[in-house]
């Protein structure tokens, strides 16, 4: 690399040798440039790879189909409401709704607690999964982010049985009433 050619010189009077130019080129600046460009492109590219989550909805029920019987004690209802709030209650009766949010201490803890109760009563299913059934309901004020977040929680808590359902009137009344069942 750019060494000084020391082979020439020496005694005078001998044959005049043409200087052999070194074929080595100093690559350092070129390397600098290459890595500079790499770092530049790596830092300016935004890594936004889209991914997809699967969502399977049940087949639309036919009239002659009987609804499946579900034990009430397995059911946890999760209702997404406006401003990133969640209401939840257990069982089928929309009463005593409690508020929660999307943090790890919020709805995730609720689901995990419910799973413990269900596991204690019903045990795990044959695949070793919890038998908890989550019914996800989205009010018209919720946004799409809420839906994805809740579906994510299903994945995190390994809840295998969940369904997206319509909110019913009693639940809406209970929410309007601050969680308590509406006075009949």
């Amino acid at each position: 690399m750019a060494q000084i050619d020391t082979s020439s010189g020496g005694d005078k009077g001998k044959k005049v040798r043409s200087k052999k130019a070194s074929t080595n080129v100093d690559m350092t600046p070129m390397v600098d440039l290459a890595f500079l460009l790499i770092s530049f492109f790596m830092l300016t590219t935004s890594l936004s790879k889209p991914v997809a989550m699967n969502l399977s909805m049940p087949v639309k029920p036919k009239v002659e189909d009987k609804p499946q019987d579900v034990p009430e004690s397995k059911v946890l209802n999760i209702i997404c409401d406006k401003d990133n709030t969640i209401w939840y209650y257990e069982g089928f009766v929309a009463a005593g709704l409690k508020k929660s949010d999307y943090t790890a201490d919020g709805i995730r803890k609720v689901i995990l607690d419910k799973q413990k109760l269900v596991d204690a009563k019903w045990g795990k299913d044959k695949n070793g999964d919890t038998q908890t059934i989550c019914l996800i309901k989205l009010t018209d004020d919720a946004n799409y982010n809420n839906m994805v977040d809740v579906l994510d929680e299903m994945d995190i808590t390994k809840t295998k049985v969940y369904a997206i359902q319509a909110v019913n009137k009693l639940e809406l009344e209970a929410i309007a009433n601050g969680g308590n069942a509406a006075v009949q």
């Binding site: 890594l47 889209p50 997809a52 989550m53 969502l55 639309k60 994805v148 579906l151």
Partner: peptide, 13 residues
Amino acid sequence: EKDVNSFKLVTAL
């Protein structure tokens, strides 16, 4: 309604 019961939701990582 069109019998597409399984689909994907595109999300970010």
